[in-house]
Write a protein that binds this DNA or RNA. Sequence first.
DNA 1: TTGAAAGCGTTACCAT
DNA 2: ATGGTAACGCTTTCAA
Lengths: 342, 342
Amino acid sequence: MAKKKISIKDIAKSLGISITTVSFILNGKAKEKRISDELTLKVEDYIKAVGYKPSHLAQSLRLGKSKVIVFMVEDISNQFFASIAREIEEKAYKNGYKIIYCSTNNDPEKAKTLIDTFKVRSVDGFIITPTPNLENTIIDLIEDEFAVLLFDRWIPSIDCNYVVVENEKSAFEATLHLINNGCKNIGFITVESDQIQMKDRLRGYNEAIENHGLKSNVLMLPFQNPSDQGLSQKIQLFIQQNADLDGLFFATNYLAFEGLQALNTLKKRIPIDLLVVSFDDHYFFTLFQPNISAIEQPLESIAEKLMEGMLRMLDGEGTYLKDFKITLPNTLHVRASSDAKK
Amino acid sequence: MAKKKISIKDIAKSLGISITTVSFILNGKAKEKRISDELTLKVEDYIKAVGYKPSHLAQSLRLGKSKVIVFMVEDISNQFFASIAREIEEKAYKNGYKIIYCSTNNDPEKAKTLIDTFKVRSVDGFIITPTPNLENTIIDLIEDEFAVLLFDRWIPSIDCNYVVVENEKSAFEATLHLINNGCKNIGFITVESDQIQMKDRLRGYNEAIENHGLKSNVLMLPFQNPSDQGLSQKIQLFIQQNADLDGLFFATNYLAFEGLQALNTLKKRIPIDLLVVSFDDHYFFTLFQPNISAIEQPLESIAEKLMEGMLRMLDGEGTYLKDFKITLPNTLHVRASSDAKK
DNA sequence: TTGAAAGCGTTACCAT
DNA sequence: ATGGTAACGCTTTCAA
C-alpha cells in the first residue's frame, strides 16, 4: 500500500524515456514540445497508475516560488482575525496557495523575529496587521521583493499597499446615530493605542461630537490583555463618575462585552438609561438582550480584496502594485440598544 | 539595502574557502570537524555581517523534512479551534516548526483533497479533526510514515494516536448535576452526527438519566451550518412540546446560544423555570445573565499534548508512538443557570 | 520529437 | 583541518 516516494526519475526509468519528456508532459507542454500523443498518453496513464505527485519542495527550490503566504495577525484566536483567516484560507487553496499563520501579540519584537524567519525565501507573500515600530521591517520586506499587504491597520509613513475599513467615517456615523436618537452626553470607550484604526475611530467620534456642540467624553483604557480583569471595573467607575451619560460607544467589541458587564452590575437599563453601540459586530450582540447595535466590518470583502491583491502580485503584475490602497465601507446595524423609541 | 539572496556558495567564494567548511560551521560541527577557531570565528562574523540565513527550502529538500505541520480542523474560525490554533502555533514556533492550517468544513471530500495536497512530501506532520469516512486516508497517511495525531474526535476502527476529552464522563456529570439540583425532566439538545464526541456526550447523558430512573428526552437537530436560521425555532418548538421540562443540557455551545435565544423568546426564566448547562465553555456564558453553567475543555492541555506528541514523533521516536491515546478531563463550571438555590 | 545536463541551496560522505 | 562532489526532485535551455 505504502507507495514510496516516486520521482520523475523513477517514472522516466520505468518507461525508458528521459526525465525531460516526463517533465514536459507533466507541465502540459506536450503539445508545445510536440511530444507524440501516444507517448503522452502512456506517461499520463503511468503517472495516474502509480499515483505520482510532484514535490512542491523541489519545485519551489527550482522556481524560487513557494506558493506559501504568511498570515500574520495580532491574535489568531480573536474572532475577527479567525474569521478572516477562514475566508483567506478558502481563497488561497482554490488558487494553489497555502497559508501559514502566526500571531504577533502586537509585540514588535515577536513580529520582527517572525518576519525574519519567513524571509528565508520560503514564502512568497505576507499579509500583516502591523505592530508598532514595524516600518523598517516592512520596508525591507518590500525592498526584498516580497509581496506584502497590510490590513486592519496601515502605516501612514510608508508606501505599502493595504486593505482597511472606514474607521473614521463609521465612528462618525455611529456617533451621529446616537445623537439623532437623543443622546446629549455620549461616552466613548476605547483603548490607549497607537494603532491607527483606533485613532481614526476616536477622530470620527470627536468630529460628530464637535459638529453638534456636544462635550467629548472619552475613557481611554490602558492597552492590555483583553482577558484581564480590571477593564470592566474601570468602565464601571467611568459610568458612575459621569452620571449624566446617556449614550455609550465602544471602540471594539471586546470593550463592549466588558462594558455590558459593567452596565449590568450597575443595573443600568439599555436603552432606557443609556443607548449603546459598538464597533465590530459580533454574533453575541444579537443574542444579548437587548440586541446591541454595532458596526459590522465586511469580513468577506476584506478577505477577498486581500487575496485579490496577493494574487495580482504573485501571479501577475509583480511585487509592486501601483496603488492598491483599499478602504472598505462598514455597515451600521441599528438594534434595540440604540433605538430610543423602544 | 536589499540584500540579494546570498548562499553558502557566495560565502565560501568571498572567503576563499570551501562550501563544506562553511556548512560545517553553520551546523555547529566546527569542533567536531576540527576546524580552527580562527576560521570559525571569521566565517561566523562574515555570516553575521552579510545577514546570511539558510534556505529552509533547500534544507528541507536535502533532509527530507520540512518542519511544517498541518493543522486541519473542521472550521478554523470556530472559537474552539481558533483557540487551540493559537496555542499550537506558539509551541510550534518555539520548536522551529511552522503551522499551515486548513478547514475541512467536515466534508470528507475536501479533507481528502487537502490531505492529498499536503502528502506531497512538503509537510512532516498532521494534526486532524477527522471528518466521516476518513479512515482509509488516515491509514494511508500513517503507512506513508507521516506523523499524525487526531484530536477532538477519534476513529475507533483504526489504530491512530489522538488527544480528546472525557466527553461521556463530563456529560454524565453535568446531567447528574442537574438531577442533583432537582431536575426531573432534562432535555438534551444535540446535533445529528456520527462524530464520536457527540455520541459520547449523548451516552453520558443517557447513563445518568437511566441511573436515576428518569426519562430520556433528546432533541436531535439536523447537522447543518451553525449560522442557519432554523435551529433556534426548532429548539423553541421542542421546549413548547415538552411543557414539563425543567432542565436543558446543550451538547455544544453554539446550540446553547440558539437555545438561549429560544428561551428568551419564550420568556422562560433561567434558572427559575429551567436549569441550563452546556458543553464547551465560552466567554459569553459568563457575560450572559444569568451566567450559564458549562463544561470547559482544557484548551491549553489539549494543545500541549498535541505538540508533545508531534515533537516526540518528529524529533525523536519516529512516526509511530506506541500508545499516545490521550483522554483529558474537563471542568464543569457551575454558575447561576443551574443553581437551584438562586 | 526527445534527451543531456545545468542549476536551485543544502548536507554529508569521502578524500586529502 | 579542509575541500570536492554527489544527491535531494524539479524545470528548462540547448543539442540532436
